[in-house]
Amino acid sequence: MSETSPVQRRPAGELEASVLAALWAAGEPLSPAEVQRALGGRLARTTVTTILSRLHDKGAVSRSRAGRGFTYSPIQDSAGLTARRMRSELDKQDDRGTALARFVSQLTSEDEQLLRTLLEAAGDAPEGPSAAPRPGPGAGP
């Protein structure tokens, strides 16, 4: 009887991140077969198609009909996707204040200063459809 090593699963999101990286690098819409090739053929085409479908369901990629299949394009760049994920996680919290406080408490001093600078700049920006209302001191939820 031969010994087999346990199958190691990839960390959650690693395959999606690899597929998105391939799409960003291409700079043009790709079919699942093209994504598979861009990833070095390590994944089955059905796996790539499943990942692309899940990314589409999550709103991370758009797809366009191409013959009998689809081509896929990322909706946002890497920074935009990270921001969207952060917002999505924050929206799941009942106590947003505590979640934000814990996030801020884990920032490096450089990131904290950068966040302060960005918040100050956002406060100077003209209000528009994308500008979120900023509650005043003591404002409740």
Rank of each mutant, 00 (worst) to 15 (best):
A125E: 02
A33I: 04
T47R: 04
D95I: 03
S78W: 15
P137W: 03
R102W: 14
Q93L: 09
G40R: 00
T82N: 07
V104N: 06
A99P: 01
Q106G: 15
Q93T: 10
S2C: 06
T4S: 13
A101T: 07
G67N: 04
P29T: 04
A83C: 10
S109D: 15
R54A: 07
A66W: 05
A26Q: 01
L115H: 05
R116F: 00
P11D: 10
R84D: 14
P133D: 07
E120S: 09
L115M: 11
G27L: 01
L30F: 01
T82G: 02
R85T: 09
P6Y: 02
V35E: 00
S64V: 08
R37F: 13
E3I: 09
A17H: 07
L118K: 05
A139R: 01
V48Q: 02
G67T: 03
D94I: 10
S62G: 12
G40S: 01
L119F: 15
L90I: 13
A12W: 08
I51M: 08
A131H: 14
H56W: 13
P126Y: 04
K92S: 14
G138H: 10
T82W: 15
L39R: 09
L81V: 11
R9G: 07
S73V: 05
V104Q: 10
T47M: 06
A125Y: 05
E110A: 08
E14H: 08
K92H: 14
R102L: 11
K58G: 07
T49M: 06
E34V: 03
L55Y: 01
P126T: 14
S130M: 09
S31E: 03
L15F: 11
L107C: 04
L20H: 00
A33L: 10
S31G: 08
K92F: 07
A121D: 11
E120H: 13
E3H: 11
P32G: 11
R85E: 12
L20P: 00
R9P: 01
K58W: 12
Q8I: 12
L23C: 09
Q113S: 13
R102F: 13
E14I: 12
T49A: 12
R37G: 03
S73W: 00
D94L: 12
A25R: 06
S73D: 13
V35K: 00
R116S: 00
Q36N: 07
R63D: 04
K58S: 14
P141G: 07
S2F: 13
T46D: 11
G97R: 14
A131S: 15
P129H: 10
L90C: 10
A122H: 09
R42N: 12
L30A: 08
